[in-house]
């Protein structure tokens, strides 16, 4: 059990899919970082504006949407750096090949979960689009906008998880061949 990032299996991979994945993950975390900076500025602006007697009515709502960007767009990059919390105390005690199988199974399940979630978010967006759902505030923001950000974040994560599964399968194969 350690948060010390062990090298992710996909870091050894180098082909078109993984190059694209890296680029998309980078773009995601940078967009998330920009959203974090934007939240800081917006909230600060709101405080100052209210102090001088001209409060905004949009700051709270917009920062709420940006929060979604901060929370999900960097998910793939966080995965690539193995920074999501996991408890590997028990798995670490397993023998090499057994351990690889267990890991593969675990990450396949996470991939399925996130892929399913992407479908769920797509259904949510379809529902919001059908009714033209908007926020109830003055801004009347179409709610598909923040929902699309959510979709993008988890879609990138699904892609990264697929990469993780591919890398694990290859690792498993390499070691099987070596044993033979």
């Amino acid at each position: 059990m350690t948060a010390e990032p062990e090298a992710a299996p996909e870091t050894n991979e180098n082909n078109r899919f993984f190059r694209l994945l890296n680029r998309v993950s980078d773009a995601g975390v940078i967009a998330g970082g920009c959203a974090l900076i934007a939240i800081t500025l917006i909230v600060t602006y709101d405080v100052i504006a209210r102090f001088i007697g001209h409060p905004t009515i949009w700051a709270t709502e917009i920062s709420g949407y940006l929060l979604i960007a901060v929370a999900v767009l960097g998910a793939a990059d966080t995965l690539r750096r193995n920074e999501h919390f996991a408890m590997t105390l028990l798995v670490d005690t397993l023998r090499g090949q057994v351990r690889r199988w267990v890991s593969l199974a675990a990450w396949c399940v996470v991939l399925l979960l996130v892929a399913g979630l992407v479908l769920g978010i797509a259904a949510l967006i379809a529902n919001s689009a059908r009714f033209g759902l908007r926020s109830y505030t003055i801004l009347q923001v179409p709610l598909i906008l923040p929902q699309i950000v959510l979709l993008v974040g988890f879609a990138i994560l699904a892609l990264a998880l697929a990469g993780r599964v591919i890398a694990l399968v290859r690792q498993l194969r390499t070691h099987t061949t070596r044993q033979e």
Partner: peptide
């Protein structure tokens, strides 16, 4: 009938809560 949609909605609701804005800001 729609567990995936419900999961999506739960996550959307949770992440859209303005009060959680303090979390990334304190970390930042």
């Amino acid at each position: 009938d729609t567990p995936l949609l419900n999961l999506a909605l739960t996550i959307y609701q949770t992440l859209g809560n303005f009060l959680l804005i303090a979390v990334p800001l304190y970390i930042y």
